[in-house]
């Protein structure tokens, strides 16, 4: 299948609900942990090596066609924060809607039927890459890119950060994204039990706090 399908899927304008989520950046901005481009870069670097690696592994495994029930349970086990679990399933459902309209087929229909309340987003992402004719490496790259891309655009909106600087951060992190995607794909080829389980406890804690804020710009 075509390489351009990957660009369609990875495009920030792909209508799958991501624009309303900051990937933890809103809480980090409020706490003063992200104040500028350097802070954004450090935040994204940490996120890539932890939740990004875990998400990329799940996405790669789903793109390989591993059992979605096993993968969804693996995602649950790797997502201790109830707020992030809910956000991941909601985003999974929103991505599924966009994916089925974009690359219709029996694989995605079956996954949607199996998880009417939404499977975890990385699992749906991998299944979507598969439906688009792309393999586990591409699915993992998408997951890694989203891991940094979400906080970057959110920080532009939250801090008024110079958009050129934010984009330069993403470009500087590109080799890290490649490395994370490669590790995730290698693990996914070994099977579900070999999937990475790296986590970022501070992201879990601040996600729970953020979910209780009465006033916020982003859903997570």
């Amino acid at each position: 299948m075509t390489r351009s399908a990957l660009l369609v899927l990875a495009d920030g304008r792909f209508p799958a609900g991501g624009h309303a989520h900051s990937g933890g950046a809103e809480a980090a901005v409020k706490a003063g942990r992200i104040r500028d481009a350097a802070g954004l870069e450090a935040f994204c670097l940490g996120r890539l090596h932890t939740t990004g690696l875990t998400a990329a592994g799940l996405a790669a495994a789903a793109a390989l066609g591993h059992d979605p029930y096993e993968l969804d349970a693996a995602a649950d086990a790797r997502t201790p924060s109830p707020a992030l679990r809910a956000a991941s399933r909601r985003l999974g459902r929103q991505l599924m809607r966009a994916a089925r309209a974009t690359w219709p087929g029996p694989g995605l229909d079956a996954l949607a039927a199996a998880f009417p309340r939404g499977a975890h987003q990385p699992v749906v992402l991998g299944a979507t890459a598969r439906a688009a004719g792309r393999g586990p490496e591409d699915a993992a790259h998408c997951a890694a890119y989203e891991t940094a891309g979400g906080p970057a655009t959110a920080t532009v909106r939250l801090l008024g950060l110079d958009p050129y600087q934010a984009t330069a951060v993403l470009a500087r992190l590109a080799p890290v994204m490649d490395e994370v995607a490669a590790r995730a794909t290698a693990a996914a080829r070994e099977g579900v039990d070999a999937l990475p389980a790296a986590s970022a406890p501070l992201l879990d804690i601040t996600a729970e706090q953020h979910a209780a804020w009465p006033v916020r710009l982003f859903a997570s």
Partner: peptide
């Protein structure tokens, strides 16, 4: 542009 949350 991205109506998914509203459709949900």
């Amino acid at each position: 542009d991205d109506i998914s949350a509203n459709l949900e």
